[in-house]
Write a protein that binds this DNA or RNA. Structure first.
Lengths: 246, 246
DNA sequence: CGTTGTGTTGATATTAATCAACAAGTGTGG
DNA sequence: CCACACTTGTTGATTAATATCAACACAACG
């Protein structure tokens, strides 16, 4: 039962149930890409919904009917091979857009890591939306460019870095997300909210290699307190060296 | 000595030397993203130049002063590690845009594969350009989305495919470029205009492994006539199977 | 208190990298 | 026109890295 977005609940529109709490409160929501006075128009075409943890709400190859914005939680994006091998191409946090490519079918799958809220639009209305809200188009272009940079960085990691370099790079990247993390982490505590399996599928390694490499980094005094859901950095310089920083 | 773009050489503007041949003649040029009557305005901010084969005209880490469109030839995009390991993230043919990301420094390097012509703008003027030419912005958004899809596909290849699957996938991808190739190739002839070193750095392999894998595919009767600059497909189904098609 | 999911560690196998030799093509200067 | 160096590609032998197979630890949960 989708909830239609609006900041003007008093307007006499069909499908308007309640103010869009996520748009009002969350700085990275899709709604923040359009002026306040335009939110009313968005209400007619957008719907917000909850996706329970673990559910795959975009299936690679399915008809690309919608365009999404993550308004809460984190989404796992991945591609699969016939025999089950999986490559996670990224984790989309609150604020990220999904399904931008002009294609009849989704080129990836998306799964809710935790309980996720998404705001979605029919793709058939995307063109009109962008024409109506130039700010949204600029926002999309900006994020697409940044995602492209991240993708290139990941290609370097997957194609040319050793297991140790991959894990160290991943830890540093995770450390950079500290600011946006719900429990804001300290300088030296790196959160690892995802499973080893997710980390492995993101880094193009096996879970065993990820585990062994973390152990090795701990034995080398680079990190300490290796736990399931986080590690603490003992030697930041050594970690950066291990990551193969240019 | 940059040549400023214009389709109206008679206009009394500074820096207008000659009509922009590439924009007039080439269907994928940046200029085709804007209406004919607007080309005149582009002339004031765009400059076209030739890059000799092998020259690195974008260096990773340098100040991101410009935004590029490839108007002729092919460009090799890559990222490097300190010890020289290199990952080619893509080959940009005529029509591709480079330097989209909002960042102070280029996140990649770019090198001319053959003699290349590029049309470039100062990044400081990009914002204004996009405001003036909405068609350009739509075009950029579209290509960025498609590049993101290609990048995800490449992440799957680099993270999860075997050497044989990588090479087979690459051959199929090359086959798909036939339509846009200068010497238009037949159904079964796949051009390999780049060196083995380029292929290796694109697939995250060594040149030896690329060479061996091509030999193996030939011995298996999947391809035949393996030459330096192209191969012929003997068994398309076997090639697709080898690529690990979903 | 067993069961299940997740993570760690060990032993072994496999893949692709590395090191090395050589062949084929290209350009240069004598 | 022919040595010559130089680049690019192929093939072989060996090594190193990571995957695979397997056992076990531990926590969450019924």
């Amino acid at each position: 039962m989708p909830v239609v977005l609006t900041h003007r609940p008093a307007m006499p529109m069909a499908h308007v149930d309640e103010p869009c709490a996520s748009c009002a409160a969350r700085p990275f929501s899709v709604c923040n890409a359009v002026p306040d006075e335009d939110l009313y128009h968005l209400a007619a075409v957008a719907e917000e919904m909850t996706v329970p943890a673990g559910e795959e709400f975009i299936v690679e190859g399915d008809a690309a009917t919608h365009f999404f914005n993550v308004t809460g939680g984190t989404v796992r994006l991945f591609k699969s091979l016939a025999d089950g091998r999986r490559q996670i191409t990224g984790f989309a946090p609150r604020g990220h857009f999904l399904g931008l490519a002009v294609s009849d079918n989704y080129g990836f799958s998306a799964e809710a890591v935790d309980n996720v809220r998404i705001c979605r639009f029919r793709r058939s209305r995307l063109r009109g939306l962008l024409d109506d809200f130039p700010a949204l188009e600029k926002r999309l272009l900006e994020t697409a460019g940044n995602e492209l940079v991240a993708a290139q960085e990941q290609m370097l990691l997957l194609g040319r870095k050793s297991a140790r370099e991959r894990v160290a790079s991943f830890l540093l990247a995770q450390a950079r997300t500290c600011g946006t993390q719900k429990p804001p982490c300290t300088q030296s505590m790196i959160p690892l909210p995802m499973t080893r399996s997710d980390i492995a599928d993101y880094l193009g390694l096996t879970i065993e290699t990820v585990s062994r490499t973390l152990t090795q980094l701990r034995n080398d005094g680079v990190i300490s307190q290796v736990g399931v859901s986080g590690v603490s950095v003992s030697n930041r310089v050594a970690l950066e060296t291990a990551a193969g920083r240019l």
